[in-house]
Design a binder for these strands. Structure first.
Length: 834
RNA sequence: GCCGGAAUGGUGGAAUUGGUAGACGCAGCGGACUCAAAAUCCGCCGGUGGCAACACCUUGUGGGUUCAAGUCCCACUUCCGGUACCA
């Protein structure tokens, strides 16, 4: 079959998409005869249309999927929809559409867009998290966790709009005000459900080691710091006149004798009882309100102006017996440590600033060796190591030794002891939203909080509700949902109307892909065992912490609940974090509205060109700013490949990649063959180990250039034609993961019976790479001064001799004495002379 | 603020383990083909000086280590991501 001279992507792409779809070409099942490869990209939120960030993400995955297929792996490559979430409710408010309708119609649109890109998905496994068949299982997980104590309830402050009477997402708070009505946002305590992720803090931290090599080190570092394990001491300060303690966490127990005040977070639970009835109670309350409603990022800022108020109450230093005034401070965070800080102004900068501002005593207890510090003249806290002073029996000890001794004594006296603290907080999953998975509990007046019975799952999210214009969830005002009976006593009860954080759905979807249609259990045990863990996960770096940490937590939790194999500790063996596709320098996102619609590009250039350009434009990890120019280059290249085959009809034969290995003396044949094999080596390495797809494409371009350069010369002989045919087949095979439609079409035109997808990845041969001579660069004092050609395999002495004999080098060495000659075999000679 | 990144020609980027800076593209310029245009093909393309050979400068800024630094170390600048209810 001859190729038409014109490349027409639209028709040939649709042709191959139809063939793939009819054949179920990418459907896969358990096959123990082949190595498995579970590859996933982060599933999209169905925002309406796919954007270039999606395209980039799925192109990266698709190249790997097709590459691994050629390598003989049994590849599982699924896709689904992260379908619950806030934007559906916003759309409901804005357009009056029901969140479900909006979501499902977006899914339909986006599915069609993805199919038009030609991605190699097993579409039978598609999941949408908003379907009861999906979310019922996480309701079950929730109940299991509740039983195990991994889920619990506690009060937590929420953004509250007093005028809309609704909780606001952080995104909905703009400069401290409600995004819809502009009222100042308040903090309101609500009882919320939490996953006890901190129970896994140590394992989550320790297992980061298992991910080294497979995950980018910056992600590991970020997770490490996010968990933020720190060892220190818990110290109890008795409140004066009460039988109650204020507990603090401190990494600086060595400075215990230097405590001159206590600072509590305004949210600390003891605050209420400490200030009740004080003369300045209104002033204190005003301070608390002010601080609580501050911007949460500002409040953590180091440049924050330290503010505080004295409560009038005192506590007692457990060692010195000193009366310690209890203050409230705007820089103390309620959810770190115990929400209380023993303040040592001499040795902590924040405490120092605070003490100076409010005229509180500064007491030095650590001195630099052989020096004395004068509190009155200090300009900043002394935080370096030193020797303990003014510290009773501990005076004279180096401070780190003193810390151990003081912690020991705290234990002996029952006033504290060593403890570990984490920055990581438990995961609040309660959302006062409609479009989410219902939390499966009911509230009974008689029996209290009761879990829904497992056999009564799923708790269906009612779809026949009128969504509210003010952003409030319609669930509390939907009697058919709220009113129920207690699973315990059968009496009247109210359903929980909060739904789950959408991060819950995305924490386990990878496992559901292994048995997505199973309806009597969340997972098929055999499928889990065969497919998990995910071999390669690809997604945006913006998920480096939350989503990835939650998924890791879920994996450990589901393992411990008996759902996952015992030996499965981590969900994702390898992670590729792609950079963002920016537009005009900032993140493309549905909320910002700066989105490039790929459809127009596909219309104009075809999916293959769009795929190729997305991967060629930048390395995967790097952000790139989308521009319309540049795709022209990809388009030209694709056409050039087409034309190369169309023009050389005489060579059209079912030849395979790297098939010509006949001995050749012809320099052109040896040259082209060397380039062919070097390209196979580089492209395999770039895709398979380096994840540098842009350089893989550049290498294929160079091979195409080489074929075009040699074709006139080689086409005249039979041996030359064999060499050209082989190189051209190699081009097709290497390019196939990037531009599969084009390559299948040409492959078929060459007369192959099987699809290119059924080929095996070509093997490069060392002997094809061999050269007779190599060029060595010669430097004098580190500056490039010449090049010499030496026979391949020359020894160090020969290379040095050739370098020193080179005319240009001799000229540069005139009047100088050679001090040293460094020879880097096969590469470079550097002559040091003066 | 804190945590994590990034910065290389006009431009996207390459340089894989400290060893030829600018691969491969885009844009631009010159030429061929054409009545003309598009497409295609050929050539040039970091800066300064020079007719040239060539020399000097150049990887955000300032220091340092080394025979050799885009790459390692220290100190900065700017931009980007995350910061627990956007996903």
């Amino acid at each position: 079959m001859a190729l038409s001279s014109r490349y027409d992507p639209q028709s040939l792409e649709e042709k191959w998409q139809k063939i793939w779809s009819e054949k179920g070409a990418f459907d896969c099942d358990i096959d123990t005869s082949r190595p498995k490869y579970f590859l996933m990209e982060m599933f999209p939120y169905p925002s309406g249309r796919i954007h270039m960030g999606h395209v980039r993400n799925y192109c990266l995955g698709d190249v790997l999927a097709r590459f691994r297929r050629l390598q003989g792996y049994n590849v599982l490559h699924p896709i689904g929809w992260d379908a619950f979430g806030l934007p559906a409710e916003n759309a409901a408010i804005k357009n009056g559409t029901h969140p479900a309708k909006w979501t499902y119609s977006n899914i339909d649109n986006m599915r069609a867009q993805l199919k038009r890109m030609g991605y190699a998905y097993d579409w039978r496994r598609e999941v949408a998290t908003c379907r009861p068949e999906y979310y019922r299982w996480e309701q079950e997980f929730f109940l299991k966790c509740l039983k195990k104590g991994l889920v619990y309830r506690k009060e937590a402050p929420q953004n509250w709009c007093p005028s809309c009477h609704t909780v606001l997402a952080n995104e909905q708070v703009v400069d401290g005000r409600c995004w819809r009505c502009d009222s100042p946002v308040e903090q309101k305590d609500l009882t919320q459900w939490f996953f006890r992720i901190t129970a896994y803090a140590d394992e989550l931290l320790a297992d980061l080691k298992k991910l080294e090599g497979g995950w980018p080190s910056r992600v590991l570092t970020m997770q490490h710091n996010w968990i933020g394990r720190s060892t220190g001491a818990e110290i109890a300060f008795r409140i004066e006149g009460r039988e109650e303690d204020i507990k603090v966490f401190s990494t600086r127990a060595d400075t215990l004798f230097g405590v001159t005040f206590m600072t509590l977070a305004p949210e600390h639970p003891l605050v209420e009882s400490l200030i009740a009835g004080r003369g300045n109670e209104p002033e204190i309350r005003a301070f608390i309100e002010r601080t609580r409603n501050m911007d949460r990022l500002d409040r953590q800022s180091e440049t924050l102006e330290k503010d505080g108020v004295f409560t009038g109450a005192y506590c007692i230093n457990p060692f010195t017996g000193d009366r310690i005034p209890i203050w409230l401070g705007n820089f103390v965070l309620a959810d770190y440590g115990t929400g209380a800080v023993m303040a040592v102004p001499a040795h902590d900068q924040r405490d120092f600033d605070f003490a100076r501002r409010f005229g509180i005593e500064i007491k030095v207890v650590v001195s630099p060796a052989g020096q004395e510090l004068d509190p009155a003249s200090m300009t900043e806290a002394f935080t370096e190591p030193g020797v303990l002073v003014n510290s009773g029996e501990f005076t004279g000890m180096p401070n780190d030794e003193g810390r151990e001794a003081i912690i020991r004594k705290l234990g002996e006296t029952g006033r504290g002891g060593p403890t570990v603290n984490y920055r990581l907080r438990d995961w609040n999953i309660s959302r006062q939203r409609y479009w989410g998975a219902p939390i499966p509990v009911v509230y009974c007046e008689r029996c209290g909080v009761q879990p829904v019975k497992e056999e009564d799952l799923p708790v269906l999210l009612p779809l026949d509700v009128q969504t509210c214009d003010d952003g409030r969830s319609p669930l509390p005002s939907t009697p058919s949902f709220v009113e129920t009976v207690c699973p315990c006593c059968g009496g009247p009860a109210r359903r929980e109307t909060d739904t789950m954080d959408t991060f819950v759905e995305s924490s386990w979807y990878f496992a559901r892909y292994t048995s997505p249609r199973k309806d009597d259990a969340p997972f098929d045990e055999k499928a889990l065992k065969y497919w998990l863990p995910v071999d390669q996960y690809i997604g945006g770096v913006e998920h480096a912490i939350l989503h990835l940490l939650y998924s890791r937590f879920f994996t450990k939790m589901l393992r411990d609940c008996g759902y996952f194999p015992r030996e499965l500790d981590e969900p994702f063996s390898r992670l590729l974090t792609q950079g963002m596709v920016l537009l005009g320098g900032s993140k493309m996102s549905k909320s910002k509205g700066n989105i490039v619609d790929p459809d127009a590009m596909v219309q104009k250039y075809g999916a293959d060109t769009v795929r190729l350009f997305c991967l060629f434009a930048a390395p995967p990890e790097r952000d790139f700013d989308w521009t319309d120019s540049g795709i022209e280059g990809a388009s030209r290249f694709v056409s050039r490949v087409w034309r190369m085959f169309a023009d050389m009809e005489a060579l059209l034969a079912p030849v395979k990649a790297c098939s010509d290995l006949s001995p050749a003396r012809d320099e052109a044949i040896r040259s082209l063959r060397r380039i062919e094999h070097a390209t196979v080596k580089k492209v395999g390495d770039d895709i398979g180990s380096r994840s540098q797809f842009n350089t893989a494409i550049a290498a294929i371009m160079e091979l195409v250039n080489a074929v075009n350069q040699y074709r006139e010369e080689l086409a005249t002989t039979q041996a030359g034609c064999a060499c050209l045919s082989s190189a051209m087949a190699t081009v097709l095979t290497l390019l196939f993961p990037f531009t599969p439609h084009l390559c299948e079409e040409i492959w078929q035109a060459l007369g192959h019976e099987d699809m290119l997808d059924a080929e095996t990845w070509p093997e490069w041969k060392e002997e094809a790479l061999a050269r007779d001579a190599i060029t060595v660069v010669v430097q004098v004092n580190g500056k490039l001064r010449g090049r010499v050609e030496v026979p391949a395999g020359s020894g160090e002495d020969e290379v040095r001799g050739a370098a020193l004999a080179d005319a240009a080098i001799v000229r540069h060495l005139e009047g100088k004495t050679v001090r040293k000659v460094i020879v880097v075999p096969g590469k470079l000679v550097n002559i040091v002379a003066n």
